[in-house]
Simulated assay, not measured.
Amino acid sequence: MAKHEGVPFALGAFFPYRLAVLAERVSMAVAQLYADRFGISRAEWRVLAALGANGAMAAKDISAYSTLDKMQVSRAVARLEEADLITRAADDADRRAKILTLTPAGRTLFRKIVPLAQAREQDLLQDLDAEEREVLERAMDKVLARAQSLVERG
């Protein structure tokens, strides 16, 4: 463990760093599927997946749902709209907001990618038995709840 400025610290052993590395590698492993086969980015897939799972959504709601920032959502939406995979319409309740929906081509693409993503998920988890998967799910839920609590507390 390196000790600089009198404080011992090993970034590689720091939980938030390890989790970020894990999340990035897992995301990259799944992104290979749709980037290589369908030419869409991770951000574009997350927008498609959000709409595929939830139906029509306001663009601002996709940010929170997908963990993408506003600019990433904006770029992905523009690209998906250009590719005729989503449509954008004014929100009757808030004229400033835009409601996004999948086009028929977007729904078809979503239905093609989902089984591939699910198969990759299974591949990623294949070294864990059922009990380990349950423990991982419970641990992730607990850490997420705690992190959310800390964020809300400030």
Rank of each mutant, 00 (worst) to 15 (best):
I99P: 05
M57W: 10
Y65T: 11
L51T: 00
A43D: 05
A49Y: 09
K112D: 12
A31S: 05
L102W: 05
A83K: 15
A31M: 04
D61L: 10
A78D: 15
G55H: 04
T87E: 01
G39V: 13
R107E: 05
R42V: 06
D84I: 05
I40K: 09
I113Q: 00
F110L: 01
I99D: 02
A58F: 00
F110C: 02
A89K: 14
D94V: 00
A43S: 06
T101K: 09
G39H: 12
K98Y: 08
L33N: 08
E81P: 13
E44D: 04
A76L: 14
D94E: 03
G55Y: 07
S63W: 10
A43N: 01
L85V: 03
A89S: 13
P104D: 00
E82R: 14
D92M: 00
T67F: 13
D61S: 09
A59E: 15
G55T: 01
N54K: 11
S41L: 11
V77Q: 15
V114H: 06
T103C: 00
V114S: 05
R107N: 02
A105K: 07
A53L: 13
A53W: 09
D69A: 03
Q32M: 07
G39R: 14
E82F: 14
A49H: 13
K60D: 10
D36K: 03
L48G: 03
K60T: 09
V47Y: 06
A56P: 15
P104W: 03
Y34Q: 08
R79F: 14
F38M: 08
W45F: 12
F38K: 04
R107M: 02
Q32E: 11
Y65F: 13
R96F: 07
Q32K: 13
T108V: 07
R96I: 04
Y65D: 14
R37P: 10
A78I: 11
R111V: 04
T101L: 07
R79W: 15
I99M: 06
A90L: 06
R95M: 08
L85K: 01
L33E: 11
L68E: 10
L48E: 05
L109Q: 04
L85W: 04
P104V: 01
